[in-house]
């Protein structure tokens, strides 16, 4: 089969450049296979982060011809048949080396989310809830933490609002707790005050790049934003709550 030429970003925090590598492509290969072939034959020290090679661990996130993708799930024959293939690290996160970035900021966001808080189980020690209630949450729990959505979110990528907004990954992580049939905690104040739900303006770029096809924006972020609005900005609901004393907490803003 044909040879293809890759332009791969080589460098670290002190700088770098795109370097060209040409290798033979076999039938059925994905971009990660080609990077490994280049690593084994031409560039032993090429840094790539990867693990499962089956789209299940979310390690090999990078930008291929400008698109945020998993290298293990991008077939060579999906790419244009002509021209060089440009591979570079995710732009939003600090570079470590070559195609590997420092994604530790994401792990710090996760630690800010308060743990799951279930009620006591039924008398036989078991919990009961219906599959329909599991479905909503299971969609979000498919997330493999590849952070491609975080990389794509313009609030983080272009406006660098990491101090203000946790990003789509952690919006749906909170949604997976807020909609969890057993969670008893009130997640709404944190969404508004700590996690910056207002920063998202629903451009749906995150949903587009999700390799797990999670409907991040429509099923996760929008319902969360609506709950924040209902709690803090809906005047009728505020009056009703004031009269009935309902709601988990009175608005503070």
């Amino acid at each position: 089969m044909a040879e293809r030429t890759f332009e791969i970003w080589r460098g670290d925090r002190s700088g770098g450049e795109f370097k060209e590598y040409t290798e033979e492509v076999d039938e059925g290969m994905v971009v990660l296979d080609m990077l490994h072939r280049i690593q084994a034959r031409q560039a032993n020290d090429l840094s790539i982060r990867w693990n499962c090679k089956a789209g299940k661990c979310g390690s090999c996130s990078m930008e291929i011809n400008g698109m945020p993708r998993l290298a293990c799930m991008t077939r060579m024959n999906q790419l244009p048949a002509e021209g060089k293939i440009k591979v570079q690290p995710m732009k939003t996160f600090p570079l470590i080396k070559d195609l590997v970035t420092d994604v530790s900021w994401n792990y710090r966001q996760n630690e800010r989310i308060r743990p799951f808080k279930p009620p006591a189980p039924d008398s036989d020690g078991k919990y009961r809830f219906q599959q329909a209630d599991a479905d909503r949450v299971q969609e979000f729990r498919k997330c493999i933490e590849c952070f491609l959505c975080q990389n794509t979110c313009h609030v983080l990528r272009d406006h660098r609002k990491q101090e203000h907004f946790v990003g789509p990954r952690f919006m749906i992580r909170v949604a997976s707790l807020e909609m969890h049939p057993l969670d008893t905690d009130d997640r709404i104040p944190d969404l508004k005050n700590e996690f910056g739900s207002g920063w998202c303006n629903i451009t749906r770029c995150c949903t587009e790049v999700c390799p797990e096809s999670i409907n991040i924006t429509d099923n996760g972020i929008i319902p969360m934003k609506e709950r924040v609005v209902d709690r803090y900005y809906d005047p009728v609901a505020r009056i009703l709550r004031a009269i009935t004393g309902g709601g988990k907490k009175l608005p503070t803003a």
Binding site: P115, F116, P118, P121, G125, K126, Y127, R128, F129, Q130, Q131, A134, V137, Q138, R141, L177, H180, P181, L182, D183
Partner: peptide, 20 residues
């Protein structure tokens, strides 16, 4: 397994609502 559910795991359910 029951402990995992207490820690937030969401297993598939039986028609009775138990872990399938």
């Amino acid at each position: 397994v029951n402990e995992l559910e207490r820690w937030g795991a969401v297993f598939d359910r039986t028609p009775d609502g138990l872990i399938n």
